[in-house]
Structure formats: structure tokens, C-alpha cells
Design a protein around this nucleic acid. Structure first.
Length: 289
DNA sequence: AGGTCAACCTGAGCGC
DNA sequence: TGCGCTCAGGTTGACC
């Protein structure tokens, strides 16, 4: 499910019930997700205050007052759903539903906070993970040390991208999915950014002319920003913390549009689906060269 | 070193 | 209704 815009959308919806709040209770409902929970996970999170909730790549990060950071990855199907205690209510700028009775089949972790709210981590495919790392050494941690620049930061610019693509023999589609180059892009937004900048996903990364790199950078930033503003893209699993779906799927120009007319002005082409390194790529062979 | 591919897991949708 | 097949927003580790 979640690429950068979806994770950012979830972060925004979690912020009112987590930042500055106390984790009054934590329950894990199985021993592992993609990896096992760390030793004493509950004891190390329960009773702690969340100082800051932020995001790096596709990871949600909650800095605790213990000096550890709770690291959450939603994998392909993970959700963080927020429910208000007792009744539906507004907390901060979001309205959260009342918590349902009982637990769902794939509810793996439940947090209670003094917002007061319940946060349920649900992930039926279990590609997600939850762990704890020292806040101080987070950037050096195995999970983060090789992660590239944030695409919405100033460090991500044409100079950086040109340098990182230089000499690469892999198709640009695969290069942009590589988290070591750019943090947070996934299959949808790579397809959309390439379509919007008129670059073929099959073109070898190192063969892209310098003058086409700035428009590619601009397209990546623009599509990510627009997707965050729309609450992310909901294909099947993604939901905002409030439970509402995202809306950016209505603005797709390429992703999932196989056989449909290309939406580029005056382009007579149709969107084609191919497979690159095991993932579907959607593009227009007429206007992406 | 750099690149590709199967594996991890469950559910939905489709054709028969 | 049910079976079997394909596909899904990600990451990793084994292999060329």
C-alpha cells in the first residue's frame, strides 16, 4: 500500500493523538510481523510519552521520552487506524470514530493514548514491521544507513539526481524505486512521475540527458505533494488514520490505466503495461521516450 | 559492485 | 458455489 504520500497522510492523522501524548497501554497480538518484535517491546513502550512523530522514507517514527524511537513500516497492506475513546470526537483538526467492539482478524498491535484514543495497527499481509531503535543512532541503524535523500527536501535536486544516475545501466524505473537513491518513492509515483516528465521507464538511467533531469525532479516533487494534499492513493488497502480513503487515484495519468487513452495533451497513444524487475509499469510508448 | 528475481503473506477478482 | 490462477502500494537475501 503505502508510499511516501500515504505514510505522510497517516502521520498527519496520527499526530493529534500521539505527539505529546502518553502511551497508556500497548498490546501485541502475535510475536512477529515481518520481523519479530524486539525483546520487552511492550515494557519499553507502555507508559512512555511520544515527543515527536516524524517520517523518514516510508517509515513512521515516534521518538519516545526513553531515548528510543518506535519505528513503524506499513509494508504493503498496513493501516494505522485511530478511534476516539467513548464516542466519536474531534481531536486537533481530525474527527475520529468511536472504537469498534472486539478486535479484527489482523489487528496486530493496539495502542491506547491519553488523547484519549486507541490506535490499531492492522496488516493482513504482514509485510510491515514495528521495532525500537536508539533515537541518537537512528541514522546509523541498519534500517536507515543506506537510505537516500528525501525527495521533498532541497537536497533532492537535479545536481544530486544527475550524479546518482550517472553510469547506471539499470532502467530509470528501477533506479527511481531504489530507496538508496531516493527515499519513499514506490511503484505508483514512479510511474506517474515518469509519465509527467515524458521519460520512458525503459530508458537506462545513465542515458538520460542532463536537461531532462530537472523536469523529472520537478515532476517527482509535484506528484508527491499533490498526492499528500489528496490524502494519498487508495487502491484497496490504504486508509487515512481517520479511516477515510485517499483520493489521488482519481488523478492517475498512467498507473492502472492499461489500454486507456493517454491523457497527455494531443497524444494519440494508449497506456501500456509491462513488467520490470517483477513489478508492473504503466506508461505511454508514444509520449514517453 | 551492480543488477535481477524469488520469497515473504493474505485476500480480491476473474474465468471456467 | 467453488476451484485455480493472477495480481497487489515493499523489502530482503540469494544468486548471477
Amino acid at each position: 500500500m503505502p508510499e511516501l504520500p500515504e505514510v505522510e497522510t497517516v502521520r498527519l492523522g496520527l499526530s493529534p493523538v500521539l505527539e505529546g501524548r502518553l502511551l497508556t497501554d500497548v498490546q501485541t497480538r502475535r510475536g512477529d510481523l515481518r520481523i519479530p518484535f524486539p525483546k520487552d517491546f511492550v515494557a519499553r513502550t507502555k507508559g512512555r510519552k511520544v515527543k515527536k512523530l516524524w517520517r523518514r522514507a516510508k517509515y513512521l517514527l515516534a521518538d519516545l521520552d526513553s531515548g528510543e524511537t518506535l519505528v513503524i513500516h506499513l509494508g504493503m497492506s498496513g493501516r494505522m487506524s485511530v478511534y476516539a475513546h467513548g464516542k466519536q470526537r474531534r481531536i486537533g483538526s481530525y474527527v475520529y470514530d468511536k472504537a469498534p467492539d472486539g478486535v479484527g482478524k489482523h489487528d496486530h498491535v493496539v495502542f491506547e493514548t491519553d488523547a484519549p484514543a486507541r490506535i490499531i495497527f492492522n496488516d493482513h499481509r504482514r509485510f510491515g514491521l514495528m521495532t525500537l531503535v536508539d533515537t541518537e543512532g537512528l541514522e546509523q541503524d541498519k534500517l536507515f544507513k543506506d537510505i537516500g535523500v528525501e525527495p521533498l527536501s532541497e537536497q533532492f535536486n537535479a545536481t544530486y539526481l544527475a550524479k546518482r544516475l550517472s553510469g547506471k545501466k539499470t532502467p530509470i524505473k528501477s533506479a527511481l524505486l531504489d530507496q538508496r537513491l531516493i527515499a519513499g518513492l514506490g511503484n505508483i509515483y514512479v510511474c506517474e512521475a515518469l509519465h509527467r516528465s515524458g521519460i520512458s521507464p525503459k530508458r537506462l538511467a545513465g542515458s538520460i540527458k542532463r536537461e531532462r533531469i530537472a523536469p523529472l525532479v520537478a515532476a517527482i516533487k509535484k506528484v508527491l505533494s499533490a498526492a499528500i494534499a489528496a490524502g494519498g492513493s487508495t487502491l484497496r488497502d490504504h486508509a487515512q488514520a481517520t479511516g477515510d480513503p485517499g483520493n489521488f487515484q482519481h488523478q492517475f495519468l498512467a498507473y492502472g490505466r492499461e489500454g486507456l487513452a493517454c491523457k497527455t495533451a494531443k497524444c494519440p497513444g494508449a497506456v501500456k503495461r509491462i513488467v520490470q524487475s517483477g513489478r508492473s509499469t504503466f506508461y505511454c510508448p508514444k509520449c514517453q521516450t
